[in-house]
Design a protein around this nucleic acid. Structure first.
Lengths: 209, 209
DNA sequence: GTCTATATACGGATAGAC
DNA sequence: GTCTATCCGTATATAGAC
């Protein structure tokens, strides 16, 4: 007889498959991942993959949705928080991404690759436009701009800057490590430095001169 | 009889295959591209692909090397030019990338994905470390730092900033367009704006306060 | 050099026993 | 739920005629 606690100790078969699929899809993309590899990685039988998830594509859709949620959730929650200043939001966004991507460095390139190649228009189904462009942060920036506190600048530029400065180093990390002659530990240390540097840079950039 | 000028008018079969392979590999990656699609796209027979290039992988290696060269060549040439100031180099790098990526927006995510997934250690074969870290630009920055003109900062941070601010918007363009409710033309216009903005921001960031 | 036809292997998916 | 065995479509690659 299984006791309740077993559920936490050993993963269910379904969870094992999902975990393996998550790892492989994120690493090698949809086309580069074979269902046989997922089965082997999770230590289960190939037939069980179809038993639980019907098809490779259905399994992928689940993983992709998970990834997208993780990739976007932080920024949704942070930009809409009415209790923080826009400066604090910069710091919160940068910290959230750096902490997440330090653990999962493959995620952004996976998400952005699959969105880009996607033949089925995955991105069309999401309502991203309203959610971020109507966020509390955008209102704060508009107000700061109107009062002459910061430069007049398209908020999309600011978003590009925050995400570019924060996410790009992870996307380019193999190249950047090679160029800088860095080990993983050094790279991680640099990204920790950037938690302080990036918010300061962004403020500097938008400040009225 | 073929005249010399024909060589420019109609591509050779080999060139047609290469062009199609370039397009498809860059768009969909190695695993996502089928040799049949390359044949169809280039209007040639499938067997000719193997006749000219021996295998899919060999063809891919050619395309990849081309892409890498394009992706890195600008920065090599610019950072080592002894006739320009480091400020001018910022502008030249940003302009070169924005011009290139406006035409070939898929390139960076392709190159960086394939480098990341690469099982055969492609990146190890390149000597990137010495080429950029010993460049004229790095020396100029060190000198400016020693003389108190700019902040003391790891030049890798500066490289991350230039590339992140410039390249990331292209990598994330489908998402950013959706978020900002932009058409292609608007996005392109924004990137043209950034040709002026980014160099100014970088200078601002490193300036001694 | 270019084609048609085909060998060969691989990958996704299922049938059916346990 | 889980396994073995297998089907079947597809993808790379080649043989051989022209």
């Amino acid at each position: 007889m299984k006791r309740k606690i077993d559920k936490q100790l050993d993963q269910s078969t379904e969870e094992k498959i999902k975990a393996a699929a998550y790892k492989l899809f994120t690493q090698k993309g949809y086309a580069g991942t074979r269902t046989r590899d997922i089965a082997e990685e999770s230590g289960i039988n190939l037939a069980l993959l179809n038993y639980y998830f019907r098809s490779k594509e259905k399994l992928f859709d689940l993983i992709m949705a998970d990834n997208m949620k993780q990739f976007m959730f932080g920024i949704f929650a942070i930009t809409n928080d009415e209790k923080t200043s826009y400066e604090e939001k910069f710091t919160l966004i940068v910290n959230a991404y750096i902490d997440m991507l330090t653990i999962q460095p493959d995620m952004p390139i996976f998400v952005l690759s699959e969105i880009r190649y996607d033949p089925s228009g995955l991105i069309e189904k999401m309502q991203l436009d309203s959610t971020i462009m109507n966020s509390h942060m955008i209102k704060q920036l508009k107000q700061a701009s109107d009062s002459g506190e910061i430069e007049e600048i398209n908020p999309i530029h600011i978003l590009m800057n925050i995400l570019g400065l924060t996410i790009f180093p992870f996307i380019g990390s193999p190249l950047l490590k090679k160029i800088g002659g860095m080990e993983d530990a050094q790279f991680t240390a640099m990204m920790q430095e950037r938690k302080k540097l990036i918010p300061a840079w962004i403020k500097e950039i938008i400040k009225k001169k």
